[in-house]
């Protein structure tokens, strides 16, 4: 234990006095709550037919991004993000069969049995984002900024049933507005200057599906989002 502590002390050192890098490259984890009104209509129609279709309300994703300072008061960000919303109608095993098979296989069946996505809906977005921030508070430890910028999204929808797959795709432009909290003091991981950042905001971005059958069907990724990222200084 003592050696682990010593190793951590050697590898990770807080250096608050050191200026933060003006350019940082990072990976972020994103959780968002897209409105997806048309998908909700689809889910409602499917449920009306007697199925228990579960459309997720949370989209999960990540991004690769670069942040750069423009003087003391401005910061810009460019990045590529991916986001995925899932919905499914799932059939599990008949409970009696499940228990019997579990008993006859000495418990092995409990581990091997699995549910099946009879109807599987995937909405995916790949977005190119750019945002400019105004830093209205900056100390040696943290900075707080507010930003706005455009986002361009390529989206696709895949709906799979037991024998068919219906796919559609499209692209659309939108806007992002957000607040950022960035670490300005640098942690050093070995030779890498490491920082953390949090972002919360709202995205306005919907995509029309180009499929001829889709008419005005939209994948609406508009909604609030939260992002947490780790950055290295360049």
């Amino acid at each position: 234990m003592k050696y682990v502590v010593i190793l951590l002390c050697v590898l990770v050192q807080l250096a608050p006095a050191k200026d933060s890098p003006s350019v940082r490259l990072g990976l972020s984890f994103i959780v968002s709550f897209p409105s997806m009104d048309d998908e909700k209509d689809f889910a409602e129609m499917t449920n009306a037919s007697g199925l228990d279709f579960d459309l997720g309300s949370t989209a999960w994703g990540g991004s690769v991004e670069v942040l750069g300072d423009l003087g003391d008061r401005f910061r810009i960000r460019g990045g590529v993000s991916v986001s995925r919303l899932h919905g499914a109608y799932t059939e599990g095993y008949d409970p009696l069969s499940y228990v019997l098979i579990g008993l006859f296989t000495a418990g092995l069946g409990f581990f091997l049995s699995q549910s099946e996505d009879v109807i599987d809906l995937d909405d995916e977005a790949v977005s190119v984002e750019a945002e400019a921030y105004y830093l209205f508070s900056r100390t040696s430890g943290f900075s707080l900024s507010a930003g706005v910028g455009p986002v361009f999204t390529f989206a696709n929808r895949s709906l799979a049933s037991p024998n068919t797959v219906t796919k559609g795709s499209g692209s659309g432009i939108g806007m992002i507005a957000s607040l950022r909290l960035d670490q300005e003091s640098v942690w050093e991981l070995g030779c890498l200057p490491l920082m953390f950042g949090l972002e919360a905001g709202y995205r306005m971005n919907s995509v029309d599906i180009d499929d001829q059958e889709a008419e005005n069907f939209q994948l609406d990724f508009s909604g609030p989002f939260l992002k947490a990222g780790t950055y290295i200084g360049l």
């Binding site: 037919s49 007697g50 199925l51 059939e91 095993y93 008949d94 069969s97 098979i101 006859f104 296989t105 092995l108 069946g109 091997l112 049995s113 099946e116 009879v118 037991p162 024998n163």
Partner: peptide, 17 residues
């Protein structure tokens, strides 16, 4: 018994094909 597992859900879809 393990071969029987995938067959448990056959033809139980609540819609017609």
């Amino acid at each position: 018994l393990l071969m029987l597992l995938p067959g448990c859900d056959d033809n139980t879809y609540p819609f017609d094909i």
